[in-house]
Design a protein around this nucleic acid. Structure first.
Lengths: 117, 117
DNA sequence: TGGTTAATTAACCAATTGGTAAATTAAAGG
DNA sequence: CCTTTAATTTACCAATTGGTTAATTAACCA
């Protein structure tokens, strides 16, 4: 998979709250499809579809144990997401810096207008 | 916007390579719709739609300058993405640790089988 | 005023998505 | 062997997505 396609698939997989919840559950450890479905008000086939999306994005791997098909978290693709988003960190931090500057300036002005407070 | 919905919208917006390229371009500075469209082989209305997706996700803001509607990057929502993905860092780092362990083990075995190399 | 440029809106289309219910596969276990 | 349990496949549906072309809005400019 081209690195761009991998990011497309990973971001698309993460855009659904059910799938993010599934990943959060798998962070606690391996789970069967039924166990993963339990917290949600949706059918088993719907969960199967979500798992396929996660699997194609490489975010989970699947095993076999009798009639169960346990899922395991595979966080590898999230490293590219972290790398991608890191490129933009300076932009949101810069914004916070400017907010801090603004608040400091505001406070300084209040000091000048109301020296005894 | 509920925090969950914000993450949904942000991840969905980032799942398209055209939109990620637009953000990368805006990281260089403000740009008009025409300037943003220039690198792509798609129509102006298609760009307008992408910009609406980015705007609803809060990833860009838009101004007015005569007949131009300049776009600016607003990286704020990416902070939540960074925070979310950070929760999983230990999983992919653990994986690398295990790979390192495996490689060390492999090298140790080679040492035992072929001591003079 | 009339023409050009920038951008959006409207209407449409094909493909994808997230869901369902019903049928099927596969293994466990009395 | 038959039933139950786990999960998937199939077929379907409505809504969304990413794109198009044509028409419209809005501002500049000669």
């Amino acid at each position: 998979m081209a690195p761009d396609d991998a990011l497309n698939a990973t971001f698309a997989a993460l855009a659904d709250p059910t799938r993010r919840a599934i990943l959060a559950r798998l962070a606690q450890g391996e789970a069967s499809v039924k166990q993963l479905a339990e917290p949600f008000a949706i059918s088993a086939p719907a969960i199967t579809k979500h798992l396929k999306v996660l699997e194609r994005a490489g975010l989970i791997t699947r095993g076999r144990d009798a009639q169960w098909r346990p899922c395991r978290l595979h966080a590898g693709p999230l490293r590219q997401v972290a790398d991608w988003v890191e490129e933009y960190r300076r932009f949101w931090e810069q914004r916070l810096d400017r907010l801090e500057d603004y608040l400091r300036e505001l406070q300084a002005q209040e000091q000048r207008h109301d020296p005894q407070s």
